[in-house]
Amino acid sequence: MESEATAPWGAEREVGVGPWEGPWPEGDHYDPELLAQGDRRNVVDKYRYWSHAAIVADLDTRRHGFHVAIENWQHDFNIGTVVRTANAFLAKEVHIIGKKRWNRRGAMVTDKYQHIRHHASVEEFLGWAGTAGVVVLGVDLFPDSVPLETYDLPRNCVLVFGQEGPGLSEQVRQAAEATLSIAQFGSTRSINAGVAAGIAMHAWIRQHTQV
């Protein structure tokens, strides 16, 4: 069987690994069913054959101090992308403000490993942030926004993104400690909300982690 790395161009790549070969490894974090049948999940090699609970428990020991929130008043299709990126950068939590339902397809099953919290209203979200002691920062293009590239992001903060199109709500804008803008150099007025979220999360990573 050809591996993912050696599959010919155009051929469908096989994800993951097959059944464990040889004596099974010891450890409570291993999943007997995955060892027997193979592990085709969207996880890094370190977590191959681990149970779902064991993976989440390990991630919880290392999660970063930043949160991500996105307003979802009209079923924003970017939320799946935001969740997937938040998992990649090990965000503390993803917060969805507004409608509870969202399109999980873009998350590529990473929502099973990423803590997600729903807030029915902006008021509820701001109440959580105040109780948790988390700094609220909006990310959008406003005349008074400050450049993300030069802003010192707090270690414990929540980066809030508006619905694709309307952008950040006035309620969040007024409550935020600051609104941050992402430098653009082309002709478009704005960039996709999912892309903006990825850029902002990585800005926090650059400031607060050692790669």
Rank of each mutant, 00 (worst) to 15 (best):
S51E: 05
V158R: 05
V109S: 12
H119Y: 01
L137F: 09
F142I: 03
T110N: 04
Y151D: 09
V211I: 10
Q171C: 12
G127T: 10
V172E: 03
S169V: 01
D76M: 02
A132P: 06
T131I: 11
A183N: 12
A88G: 13
A132Y: 01
R189Q: 08
E33A: 11
H115T: 15
S169R: 06
N192K: 15
R63N: 09
L35I: 13
A193N: 07
D140R: 00
G80L: 00
R105L: 15
Y151E: 08
P166C: 13
S121D: 07
P32Y: 02
N87C: 09
A196D: 12
A132W: 02
G162M: 09
C157T: 09
G18L: 08
V136L: 14
R62D: 14
H67Y: 02
G165R: 00
R41D: 14
W73C: 04
Q210R: 10
W128S: 10
Q37C: 10
A176H: 01
D144Y: 11
A120C: 04
R101W: 00
P19D: 12
I96G: 00
N72I: 00
V44C: 10
K100R: 12
Q171V: 03
G16C: 05
H208K: 08
S121I: 01
V158C: 06
A54I: 09
T61M: 12
W24S: 13
V15T: 15
N78G: 07
I205G: 13
N87P: 01
G106I: 04
T209L: 08
P143L: 06
